[in-house]
């Protein structure tokens, strides 16, 4: 078996391996509201329970706060990225999430914020039926929008939301001497990735502590804990990949609207994480390159 090779970022060893990523479909939704607080309330609600397609149906996270000068209605906004495995699943996720978390939230409006996509879904065109015949459409500079009367006033949303081919599951692992150091490095990485356009980290706080492997000893389970990276059972697992001196590992999972966005997010994330004391190593999760359509080499990100 060939010895592992490494390169260094900020003096920390980075394994010369690759993250295995997958083809997904992604949309970008802009939520505006009377103030940032309510736009954020809706965005948080919309991105709730949206960590992994495995059980959540979609991977959803807040991209950034959009200032009033840049939003279509001049109010504060928050952009949210939504990803799913197929077009059908993505449309379903947009319908559910906009319908239940934006329509219901005080003073909000929802706009397609992707601009150019590979396909589009009629979301407002279906949610309009909530207006029970009192809904009104407006075509403004080529974009059709719907005004749906609600108890608060009117819910204003775009008829169609675009979607594009995207990349999900870009990742890297932060291996730390302690939980504290690994978590601090993860937080720094997530903060840095927040500045990258078109990329998000959908797990809680952007950090996943429970990376998974494909399969399980149990036949009914398709995925189970990534035993090779579990420090607490290091001595029990043949082929463990937990190095000496590592007590805790976190995974930063990145979804992006393009491969470039995911690579940029991985780069800035690793650069930020490696500046934290106590980080012993950076590596990435993959399945031997057999499952995912993209193999993102960590070295290629730099």
């Amino acid at each position: 078996m060939p010895a592992d090779s490494f390169f260094e970022v900020n003096g920390v060893k980075v394994k010369d391996t690759f993250a295995e990523a997958f083809k997904m479909w992604g949309s970008k939704v802009l939520i505006t509201a009377i103030n940032e607080r309510w736009a954020m309330n809706s965005a948080r609600s919309m991105s709730g329970f949206g960590t992994s397609v495995i059980m959540c149906g979609g991977e959803v996270a807040i991209e950034k706060v959009v200032p009033p000068s840049e939003t279509p209605d001049g109010r504060p906004g928050v952009s949210v990225l939504v990803f799913a495995n197929t077009k059908k699943q993505l449309k379903d996720q947009l319908m559910r999430r906009i319908g239940q978390t934006v329509l219901t939230c005080p003073t909000t409006a929802a706009y397609d914020w992707l601009g150019v996509g590979d396909t589009e879904f009629k979301i407002g065109a279906q949610l309009r039926f909530f207006g029970d015949g009192y809904q009104i459409s407006k075509k403004i500079f080529g974009r059709r929008l719907w005004r749906i009367p609600v108890m608060e006033g009117e819910f204003f949303l775009e008829e169609k939301f675009k979607a594009k081919k995207s990349v999900g599951g870009g990742n890297f692992l932060i291996l730390g001497e302690t939980v504290e150091s690994a978590l601090k490095a993860s937080e720094k990485a997530v903060e840095a990735i927040a500045g990258v356009e078109d990329a998000v980290t959908p797990f809680p706080g952007g950090v996943c502590r429970s990376g998974s492997k494909v399969g399980s000893k149990y036949k009914f389970l398709h995925a189970s804990t990534n035993t090779a990276f579990c420090p607490s059972i290091k001595g029990m697992v043949e082929g463990t990949r937990v190095p000496e001196g590592v007590a805790s590992i976190f995974e930063i999972v990145i979804d992006g609207l393009s491969l470039e966005a995911v690579k940029e997010a991985m780069k800035v994330g690793i650069e930020a994480a490696t500046q934290v004391e106590g980080v012993k190593m950076i590596t990435a999760a993959n399945y031997g390159g057999k499952l995912g359509q993209y193999s993102i080499k960590l070295k290629d990100c730099f």
Binding site: P72, G74, K138, I140, R147, G153, E154
Partner: peptide, 17 residues
């Protein structure tokens, strides 16, 4: 009597475009 959001949207588009 209320403040319809679509009017704000309309005028922002008219101003910018």
């Amino acid at each position: 009597t209320y403040s319809p959001l679509f009017i704000r949207y309309y005028f922002k588009e008219l101003r910018e475009k």
